[in-house]
Nucleic acid binder design. Structure first.
Lengths: 221, 221
DNA sequence: ACAATATTCCATGGATTTATGGAGGATGTC
DNA sequence: GACATCCTCCATAAATCCATGGAATATTGT
């Protein structure tokens, strides 16, 4: 009635994919890849990893079936194997945050105090359609290019201070970034608030927006 | 712009939850818990683990926030921390199967050849409502008691052969069990087929049925 | 063919994980 | 209170994972 060895092999096979999610650096790489494809050294730099270390982790993700590769000239671009992988990553984040206090603590320690106002995807959608808010995407330009919320302006956090003049006065500014655990929109909202703007931020980010099947502009057509 | 140490701590915190999914035995325990709560030694026996080993894995799942405990007299019952955990487990299975050939191979090696006909949840729902099929739940009675598809008869695989006479002749029999990777319905369908019944099986199982928010009978009211 | 760039492969030492058996705690029974 | 049951905690040895640096491989440009 079901060979126990075969059964163990099946569960071990599933665990191989689970293992890919068992290391913080690999999750950080997945987090980046959830915003669009990237080359190995771009990933290594963005995640603060040694090149060989990043390569090894990416191999592990590939073995687990979570990412695929594409060669373009001399460099190799990694990307998520599918939207279900993005969904798996997002769900892991949600479960970890909901059911484990230590995760929530680490999150607030990283993102800083909840001193800026947030709004939901639905609220954002309303305001954008009504034109009552300016929406800015504070992720790196590369990620904006790979797909963004329709109507959003690309203002990477790096450039925000220098480009404050571009933002209309007296209108709400809504910032968003990668996802629920991304610090960029928090910092953007703080900066905007301190300069007299009425600043809000999207509670989560591009990852959750895409998974909710809301409209996306740019990127792979 | 975002303390790198704090950032690493956040991703490591997420990875703590991911680690829970990185071991085959732990996934097997989750698989059992997805059918309902159980005590430690029941889990150890069902998963073929030593008691202390099972306890250690359950502690790991608890630390990760995936399960909670409830004491009842001298024994401690573990259960999933929420339906989102069941969803996470189901999604991991789906991703592993879809994107990794080795997983699919291990699955077919365990479940056996695809020599029995399967049907989807929607098809099953139609037949049950129309009354054109007899539905049997071939999981252990304990799991049936914790919740089953409305109208299903509890016929644990162990007892199926002895209780064949209970099944009406000339009517389709549909068997289901725990989920997409559960062997019980495959074996039940083979047995039924070899005894002259027209036997089908649900393509997945109770886990996916519940996650699809389809009606469930029995269990926690 | 040769050099340059991007990535993977390989070997290594240090840290982490796992299974197991025995001791220790909590609860219920007599 | 003594005892049995169920579970957790602790110590240990084997296996696995991780970061790192140097060598090997693949592609492009000269």
């Amino acid at each position: 009635m079901g060979d126990p060895t075969r059964k163990a092999e099946l569960f071990d096979a599933l665990a191989q994919t689970g293992k890919a999610l068992s290391n913080g650096k690999r999750l950080e790489l997945l987090d980046l890849l959830a915003q669009g494809e990237r080359s190995v050294d771009a990933l290594a730099r963005a995640a603060g990893l040694g090149l060989t270390t990043a390569s090894a982790h990416l191999q592990a993700l590939k073995q687990a079936g979570l990412v695929t590769t594409r060669r373009s000239g001399v460099r190799i671009h990694y990307r998520l194997a599918g939207e279900d992988v993005a969904a798996l990553y997002a769900l892991l984040q949600q479960v970890a945050r909901t059911h484990r206090a230590a995760t929530e603590q680490a999150r607030t320690a990283y993102l800083g105090p909840e001193d800026t106002e947030q709004l939901t995807r639905e609220e954002l959608l309303e305001r954008v359609q009504a034109g009552t808010a300016t929406l800015i995407d504070v992720r790196p330009a590369e990620e904006y290019a790979a797909g963004h919320i329709p109507g959003a302006l690309s203002v990477p956090l790096d450039e925000l201070e220098a480009r404050l003049a571009e933002l209309p006065d007296g209108v709400e500014v809504v910032a968003y970034c990668r996802g629920a655990n991304c610090v960029l929109s928090h910092e953007a909202a703080r900066l905007l608030g301190s300069r007299g703007h009425r600043a809000l931020r999207l509670a989560d980010g591009m990852l959750e927006w895409r998974l909710a099947a809301l409209p996306v502009e740019g990127g792979a057509a």
